[in-house]
Simulated scan of single mutants.
Amino acid sequence: MARPPRFDTPLLLDAAVRLAAESGPAGVTMAAVAASAGAPSGSLYHRFAGRSALLAEVWLRTVEGFQEGYFAALKSSDDPRAAGRAAARHVVAWSRAHPDEAALLLYGARDFGQDSWSEEHRRRADEGNRRVLTSVRELADTLGASGAQDIERVSLAIIDVPLSLVRRHLRNGSPLPPHAEELAEQCTGALLAG
Rank of each mutant, 00 (worst) to 15 (best):
A34C: 09
G194R: 15
P10E: 10
P80D: 01
A109L: 09
A37G: 05
L139A: 08
L163G: 11
G128F: 07
L163C: 14
W94L: 03
G50A: 14
V161M: 11
E152L: 15
H179F: 11
L170T: 00
A32Y: 04
Y70K: 00
H90T: 03
E57A: 15
A15F: 01
V28N: 01
A86M: 11
A37Q: 08
L44W: 03
E138C: 04
I159T: 06
N129T: 08
G24P: 05
D8E: 13
G65Y: 09
R130L: 11
G194H: 13
P40F: 06
K75Q: 15
N172H: 14
G189D: 06
L163Q: 15
H121V: 02
L74M: 08
I159H: 02
P80I: 04
A16E: 00
A16Q: 10
A83D: 10
I151T: 13
D79W: 10
G173S: 13
L106I: 11
V91E: 07
M1Y: 12
W94R: 08
F7C: 09
P177A: 12
A184T: 01
R171V: 15
Y45Q: 13
L165K: 10
L105A: 00
R122C: 03
R96C: 04
V33N: 05
G194N: 13
A73V: 01
N129F: 03
P40S: 11
P178W: 08
Y107C: 14
F48A: 06
D8T: 14
Y70C: 09
S52A: 14
L106C: 03
P80Q: 00
A157D: 11
E185R: 13
A87Y: 10
S118M: 09
D160I: 01
A72L: 13
E120N: 08
A53T: 09
F66K: 06
E185Y: 10
P5N: 04
G189T: 07
E101P: 02
L176A: 11
L156S: 05
D78Q: 14
R6F: 04
W94T: 05
V132H: 07
R61M: 07
S43A: 15
F66Y: 11
V154I: 15
V91D: 04
A39R: 02
E181C: 09
L74E: 06
L143K: 10
A56H: 04
A82C: 01
R110Y: 07
G50H: 11
T134C: 03
G50E: 05
L192M: 09
A190P: 04
L105Q: 01
V92M: 03
K75W: 09
F66D: 04
V58F: 11
S118F: 03
A39D: 07
L183E: 10
